[in-house]
Design a protein around this nucleic acid. Structure first.
Length: 226
DNA sequence: AAATGATCATGG
DNA sequence: CCATGATCATTT
């Protein structure tokens, strides 16, 4: 059978995962060609290529929205670059971190929890030695945090958000958090945004985002393929 | 070698 | 600038 681009969003989680599973074993080059797209020689200036290609193949709504990729299904799509041993090569970006107006924000209504409540992970071979076009999509899997995983995510989120609320954002480094960290997330070092300063006043600082640490996503791969 | 901090492209 | 898609590249 011929693989064709979906014209509509999946209507069920099962259909989404079925679509994802059909992509396993194919290369990014093959998927790009079938979608009439060019595969970049390297991802240096095309960092979002893999993710956007998979969005297309799974029927995710295009564009940038602070919501899930499949809002009707409550599912977020994440590609996960893996090495030859099947381990994550990079941390995983979760979402932008608001640095002001966070009073009353709780884990339950946070963007992080919303995004990670249900994720369709699509591992992709990503060894730097393999040209993007030859990288293969691996077996996708659906994940919902276990109570233990959610507790760990929540603890990190609460620790980091409290520091932000207390005006300590500039003292937060990627070393904070056991499974999730806060790191710069911007076009360049000149980007600045409002944050709360040490004395409660507004300050300008580099925009930040939440990222899942590799040890965490490595665990997800292990439990999915154990 | 691994991890942290920095950066690239795109659309609204 | 915010937010999406992430990976790059310098520092440890």
């Amino acid at each position: 059978m011929t693989l064709t681009l979906p014209s509509t969003a999946p209507t069920s989680v099962a259909q989404l995962m079925e679509r994802a599973q059909q992509l396993a074993g194919l290369t990014l080059g093959e998927l790009a060609q079938l979608a009439q797209l060019e595969t970049p020689e390297d991802l240096r200036r095309h960092k979002g290529f893999s993710g956007q290609l998979l969005e297309l193949w799974l029927g995710a709504s295009a564009g940038s929205k602070p919501e899930q990729d499949f809002p009707e299904l409550g599912v977020e799509l994440k590609t996960l670059p893996i090495d030859e041993a099947g381990r994550p090569m990079e941390t995983t970006y979760v979402c932008y971190a608001h640095l002001t107006g966070i009073a009353g924000l709780t884990w339950e209504n946070s963007n992080v929890r919303n995004k990670l409540h249900q994720v369709c992970w699509v591992p992709i071979e990503a060894n730097r030695q393999i040209p993007p076009a030859e990288r293969r999509v691996a077996s996708a899997f659906l994940w919902t945090p276990t109570p233990e995983q959610e507790a760990a995510l929540r603890a990190d989120w609460e620790e980091i958000m409290e520091l932000i609320a207390l005006g300590q954002v500039e003292s937060i480094t990627a070393r904070h958090g056991q499974v999730m960290q806060l790191r710069p997330k911007a076009a360049d070092g000149n980007a600045l945004t409002d944050a709360i300063g040490r004395d409660g006043q507004f300050i300008q600082t580099r925009p930040r985002g939440f990222y899942l640490k590799k040890t965490f996503t490595r665990g997800l791969l292990e439990e999915a393929f154990a």
